[in-house]
Design a binder for these strands. Structure first.
Lengths: 202, 202
DNA sequence: ACCTGAACACCGTTCAAGT
DNA sequence: ACCTGAACACCGTTCAAGT
């Protein structure tokens, strides 16, 4: 079961990322190890290192590919709706693949789709009359908020339906209110309203 | 060097947390392992488990203690300033101790100081005329945004002064703009403005 | 009651060597 | 050029046993 000994085609980066994407799609990205991934590809763990920098390199590629599949909002959407759509898709990706959250706390994400999202928001906002600087500020704020929500949601998922500590049930219920769909929309709406009204338009 | 054999006083939870806090204060919380902590306390790693649930239990206690040291804002502050002060102190704690960030993505934080911060915000907002529900929504939104900023800042710190990949420098500079003091204040201000203006007051 | 000793079940990654 | 084999340097945590 070694492709080295059987003279099979050499390993490629695409092959590695495809295998990782299959894990993402089957919901097993969380427990993915390099050793298991290498096994699936009939290769030694160390063979991967010729094609990827490290494990996060793989995970970041997967994350950006998932964001790519989610796509960008229609560019003729009104700016607020465009921003909301971006937030919703990021939240969805992280919600479906919680291990992606840690990536955002480990290294700045600057892959293709991350940049395309910023660019898209910038264009829509500039067209709506904001300066480039304001557009970036607004997008950054929305992205920041969304990431915070993802962090809280990831934490709540990880806790599962928790055995609430006695005398802690109400506190827990209170904090649970932080990660409802309604609260996500509320904070997002407040932020976008505050940002778009506060900035000077051209 | 075993307190079991020398008949020393039995280990206590407070002792464990004190030792962990010393690590926090000396800036070595990041690389703390249970094995090292046990060594310092002249005890086997497993002796800790009589007094703490697991490693996160220790880390969460430290995080809440640090938040406690930061204290609460003066209760007679205007509501917006109160919320800003809460955000600033959380950011400061996470900035100084990046390993705390991961805690917020792993489990909902419901320790004493986390609850006290919510309570404080609620009181100030209710006194300013908001309903209890609105107060909670507003605080949750501010907390969410702050956590998102902490995530981005932690990522940027971890990257260090990064060797910017060729042809990626401008993208990197752009993303760096997401985690400036100015941007932190901007997003926070926009959110608080949007939230406090948007909610119906009593 | 409190702690030890040894093992379990792994990790990601380095290095030098093989073909 | 591409991959292997073995080791490095650890982790947190379980379990049964010791005093």
């Amino acid at each position: 079961v070694s492709r080295f000994k059987t003279n099979a085609a050499p390993l490629t980066r695409a092959e590695i990322l495809d295998a990782a994407m299959r894990h993402a799609r089957s919901g097993t990205l969380e427990q993915l190890s390099l050793r298991a991934l290498a096994d699936e590809l009939d290769v030694t763990p160390m063979a991967l290192y010729r094609h990827v920098r490290d494990k996060d390199d793989i995970l970041e590629s997967v994350a950006d590919a998932l964001l790519g599949e989610a796509g960008l909002p229609e560019p003729d959407e009104p700016a607020p709706a465009y921003l909301v759509a971006l937030a919703v898709s990021l939240r969805q990706v992280v919600r479906d693949h919680p291990s992606i959250m840690a990536l955002y706390t480990r290294r700045p994400q600057v892959r293709a789709m991350a940049v395309a999202r910023l660019d898209g928001a910038r264009q829509v906002l500039v067209r709506a009359g904001y300066t480039v600087d304001d557009a970036q500020r607004i997008y950054a704020a929305v992205h920041t908020y969304t990431l915070g929500f993802c962090a809280l949601e990831t934490a709540r998922q990880a806790a599962g339906t928790p055995p609430p500590t006695a005398g802690q049930e109400d506190t827990d219920a209170l904090i649970a209110g932080f990660v409802t769909e309604e609260q996500f929309r509320y904070g997002l709406g407040a932020l976008i309203a505050g940002a778009t009204e506060g900035s000077a338009r051209a």
